[in-house]
Design a protein around this nucleic acid. Structure first.
Lengths: 201, 201
DNA sequence: GTCTATAAATCGATAGAC
DNA sequence: GTCTATCGATTTATAGAC
């Protein structure tokens, strides 16, 4: 039985090699450059070998997206300890935009390619997507409980709007080079102050 | 000389045929499906013939993007006549989101592919991009002149933030199927009310 | 001006030898 | 388990006949 376990480890190690190489390709040359042949070349295996560990290219892309999303979640960690819900939300917004701009290709892979739904597909489950989103909703719930909300919109609606706002900043900055012309930091601050002035009492 | 003018018209007509066919392909099958061969097949010409009228595929995509953007601008027309700057901005936001969701592939082509910069490249000129953007800035300038702004952010910053917000709604709805789960209309309204409560006195 | 034919480069995925 | 070899299908773009 030790042999099968060793084999299991080797299999996992090979998958890691593939995913690492794939990640590097996406990070440096963009998602469209992710081909089986390039991965194979990077790990010094024949292209066909990869198919013994991954069903196809999409399976690799999906797993990469999943991991990118988990990376984004980890970036939020510093914010989770902030007690005040408004300050917590502000910090999340900052960290979100920061992550998007510092990891453009990862962000693109997560939210601007066709594999996004995979992350959220466990819609009714406690998948990583909903888990993160619940975090936003909780913050707005907390604000409501403290009587600090100046709107009758639901927490889900507010969380969605919040997400749209920060995603808008990141995605526009990533695709429209030079636009918006306002520097990201200023844009983030203006958006933040406007949003919170609009939401809080 | 009549002959050269006729030829000029025929040349323009051929280009229109190509662009029409290309537009249909992008609209129905997405941008990645736009290939020279498919265009050629649609207009019943040999693939090589198109190269006599367009330098390459990118030139077609760029012109398509340009036209898509002008289409978006025309969608704003009903808003230009609204006298009150705040109401005008609200209407523009509505029309923007409406356009994006009703013409997803056109919107993708304009703001989510790699040809966006072409539209704005005349950065210091009065290109269509800046023209539309100036319209947003003017509205905020007007609000400021009327003493109705509750923020010290510049009009450019506010216009950029406004754009990010509506773009965030559209692009997230277009890529993350089912997310945000708030229906677009509600999302639009919540975003709008929050933004304007945050900006206006 | 248009076509046929094709070059040259990709790609994903598979079959079969070892 | 890995590789070689390759199928089969794409694509952009060009060369040369007509």
């Amino acid at each position: 039985m030790g042999a099968t376990e060793r084999r299991e480890r080797e299999k996992a190690a090979f998958r890691e090699q593939v995913l690492d190489a794939a990640r590097k390709i996406v990070l440096t040359h963009g998602f469209q450059a992710l081909t089986m042949r390039k991965i194979a070349e990077a790990i010094e295996y024949a292209p066909g070998t990869i198919y013994l560990y991954f069903e196809n290219r999409d399976a690799i892309a999906a797993e990469l997206t999943q991991r990118g999303f988990e990376e984004l979640l980890r970036a939020f960690a510093p914010a989770t300890e902030i007690a005040d819900p408004a300050e917590r939300l502000k910090r999340i917004g900052e960290l979100y935009v920061k992550f998007g701009l510092e990891h453009p290709e990862t962000y693109r892979l997560i939210f601007m390619e066709r594999y996004t739904s995979a992350v959220f597909d466990a819609k009714h489950d406690s998948g990583p997507g909903n888990q993160a989103f619940q975090f936003l909703i909780d913050a707005f719930d907390r604000l409501r409980a403290q009587g600090r909300l100046a709107t009758d919109a639901t927490s889900t609606q507010l969380a969605d709007a919040f997400w749209c706002a920060v995603h808008g900043i990141v995605s526009l900055k990533l695709t429209c080079d030079g636009y918006p012309e306002t520097p990201t930091g200023d844009l983030q601050r203006v958006m933040q102050s406007v949003l919170f002035r609009g939401v809080l009492k």
